[in-house]
Design a protein around this nucleic acid. Sequence first.
DNA 1: CCTTGTTAGTTACAAAATCAACCGTTAACT
DNA 2: AGTTAACGGTTGATTTTGTAACTAACAAGG
Lengths: 145, 145
Amino acid sequence: MTQKDDFQLQDFLPYLLNQAAEESSLAFQQIYKDRYGMLRTEWRVLFHLGIYGEMSAKDIGTRTKVHKTKISRAVAKLEERRFLTRRRDESDRRLEYLSLTKAGLATYAELRSVAVDYDSQLTSKFSHEELTVLRRMLRMLAHID
Amino acid sequence: MTQKDDFQLQDFLPYLLNQAAEESSLAFQQIYKDRYGMLRTEWRVLFHLGIYGEMSAKDIGTRTKVHKTKISRAVAKLEERRFLTRRRDESDRRLEYLSLTKAGLATYAELRSVAVDYDSQLTSKFSHEELTVLRRMLRMLAHID
DNA sequence: CCTTGTTAGTTACAAAATCAACCGTTAACT
DNA sequence: AGTTAACGGTTGATTTTGTAACTAACAAGG
């Protein structure tokens, strides 16, 4: 394992971002996976509906930039578990609005509180100013807002 | 789509990091995938060998935190394409050292230059100071160094 | 109306990731 | 030496994802 090159992989932003994203998601993933039997897209859909209320699969896909087939399957799984219900838009019958059931809302509330705790644990190592800079830069990189 | 909650998904660090990581990897992924027919783990292995020279699959797995089955399959694919060769460690015959062939090195050099260009394009929106802060924070989150 | 195109969402099939079990080798302990 | 455990790496079965093609519904232009 001898040095042969001066390119620094850990300074290459896409790589570094992926490493940070994976590592920082790990413990949270454990929880929604092991404790709630959910996949990544599923908790994301759950959270979107929990936060924004009724919205369509298309809306969620646009916001998360997740492909519609993944959304479709996540929605089907959440519906099967009675976490959400669908409602046809009568003026445009292609659309269906999704909203959480009581059970879905309860699960969202639980996971949300896990997320809040987890986030404050993650961010505890940094100052408020640093976090402001970090979030702004990440949002720019993610093309959010 | 009515507001129902004040939890901000785009401030939840694991989510924000994943969005930034995915978006910032997209165009680079297009290149190694479409132009070089590679998978994520494959370019990572290629880069590790290009940067550090000869190393074992285990070493790569430790550094990248990628599971050994994924490494094993990426190595097999790269070997099949004659980008690397294996050499048994005679003092511990479980280990094999991987190193790039001439063709592997050439491909690495090409992709490396793409990566350098791509990175400077990504980082051009930020100041040197901001980038220093960002990298330091990401390394802490990724538990690198 | 009637084509042609587009959209929201689903499905089928191929590709890839995950997980457990496996092989051969080395290490540790008795 | 002999047993047991651990390690590096591979393989096979299952799950998840990606890609394309498909409904069904709407929209625009003739």
